[in-house]
Design a binder for these strands. Sequence first.
DNA 1: CGAAAGGCTCTTTTT
DNA 2: GAGCCTTTCG
Length: 734
Amino acid sequence: MDILEGLNPAQREAVEAIEGPVLIVAGPGSGKTRVIAHRIAYLVKVCGISPYRILAVTFTNKAARELKERVHRLLAHSAQDLTMGTFHAICARLLRIEAQHAGLDKDFLIYDDDDQASQIKRAMLELQIDPKRYPPQSIRSVISSAKAKLLTPAEFARTKSSYFDELVLRVYERYEAFLTRSKALDFDDLLLKTVKLLQENKQVQEKYQDRYLHVMIDEFQDTNLTQYTLARLLAGKYKNLCVVGDPDQSIYSWRHADIRNILNFERDFPKAKTVYLEQNYRSTKTILEAADHLISANKHRKAKDLWTENQQGSPISIVEAYDEKEEAAFVVGEVDRLVKTAKYKPGDCAVLYRTNAQSRALEEEFLRYGMKYRLVGGTRFYERREVKDVLAYMRLLQNPQDDVSLLRVINVPLRGIGQRTIDELSRWAKGLNLPIYDTLQLLSNDKGEGPSTAPAFKPGTTQALGKFLELLKGLEAKSHQLSVPDLFDEVVKATGYRHHLLESNHQDGGDTGEDRWENILELRTVAKEYDSLEPREGLAQFLQSVSLVSDVDSLEERSESTVLITLHQAKGLEFPVVFITGMEEGVLPHIRSFDDPQQMEEERRLCYVGITRAKERLYLLRAFRRSYLGNRAVNPPSQFLADIPTKLIKAPEQRKPLKEAQYEWKPARLAPVKPQPAIPARFKAGDIVKHGVFGDGVVVSCVPTTNDYEITVAFKGTAGVKKLLLSFAPLQKA
DNA sequence: CGAAAGGCTCTTTTT
DNA sequence: GAGCCTTTCG
């Protein structure tokens, strides 16, 4: 019953530190979630604070849900009124409530990255900026970064320092105009608009500042400036701001997270109390020690003293496969072996990788051997075309001014409205500064009397547009009467979308119409959850929730399937057995980080996050050769492997041979790789050499492999280019 | 207008 | 390798 019971001294200290700013530096597996849950329970039960006055922000919806459950277990009923969720979800809710004060439409929509990209492209088109010279993606990134730093277009204008910035500014302004016109906010806006609202409207500010006596932020190392500002604002009155995080697990700088938020917290709040949670309850001594060695090589960090009372555990397996197929085959075989010979289930195992593209080979191998797996991420459910199409219709019912959705479905299923027509319509809308929906209405009202600015469409085209408008209007009327799932059915039927998928029998991206229809049905089960709400309210909530879910959110604990997941998404998760694949230079660390020491440190942190997911067994795999973007590359082992102390690594001869009969192994090639071959490299690229058989030649490359080097030599004579093993080749320097 | 074919680029990570 | 865009033809 005592809330402090069972906590170690540091955890207890963190729970009891309720006054003023608090920084909890929580190493991996240090019981962080537990501490947050107990701290909330402590505030409510011991300090008598109303749950209504506590705000807890998490990184994912899943984390929020788990936290809620834990608090609920500690508090029973009184957990209800807690405010808990991601920054984005909390902001969306707040903005909806305060829409009037924020100058927003209550029914605003949330644009995801896809929607954002299409609007940015549209803006660039109108501004005649060549997308070949200035990739929309990088413009998008700069705009997003500006928003993450609290810069509106006007403020961004003051910081701009190049011609590129100038272009970005113009796109930014136009993009904002689009959003306003479409009554939409992007992800960054949810945060930015909330901050601006709180800063500019003292009444609203006071309302929330008075309310939130305690504010807690999880994963603080991954917040950006806007989020940090928001947290400070909300905690502005009582100053009870508790942030929890681990600088060593900061891996989202590319999403404009600013590690300085946590590194400088004590400077920003000189009176802050700092608590270090350093006891690890998750991993074996071996795994923790390996992780510690790896991360210690980073220069910009706060040193920590992680320790554990757990067992020493198994040594780490470092495995070299020939290529990504064999790497995958090893993983599958090893999972199978662990399931058959040890206490593990497939669901205890997770395969981690740097890039989503790596999941493909793994998936194929899991499928081939009939092993259950669960792929997290990749083409996410809510990014699937058919799902987005149906959602676009639903969104148009909530908000017809949503140009992105309208343009998406104006001719899906095909209804005779082609690109020419759409371009004309867009140009007209631009001239009138109206959403396209409004121009459709003008068009249908305009019966030829008086001068018109409308484009001269053919009668057939005008009719098609009119029919489309009627379709939307009819559905809009129904949206006031039908529950969300019923409306969903109506949309799928009335738009002809169902027919479009099932009858047209087209096949895109390997998915058949049936596959796609299944996804629609899946989406319908989500809609079903909003069955009992008032029609329009249900629609609004349905749309908001589908905009803010992530893939890990649906990852259930203790599934029967092995999890395939990116290193980023794996943050916050743990598994008894972890395989990290692609431990190669160029993959992890990723090639795009090579020229930036800060990025390299982040790559190292990413690897650290991966390693510290493991509770009992850790495998680090690399492929000698890997297909990438259609062509093959030979990558040297990841430099991170060299930072794992040899004494923690399973010696080659101790490894059980991979002999499971049903798989075609090539065990000889699956020997573990030592970071550095024991023999010295006698040659380097460019050396002139003489071979006993092939004669004179030039060394092209000399790549370390397992206890050897693969040396590529271009010979003068008929021998041509040969790959040789250095230890066997009769080579001499010429 | 629509389908098919060809060419192009660009792929790190995602709330 | 895939998705996106443009071109071409019916």
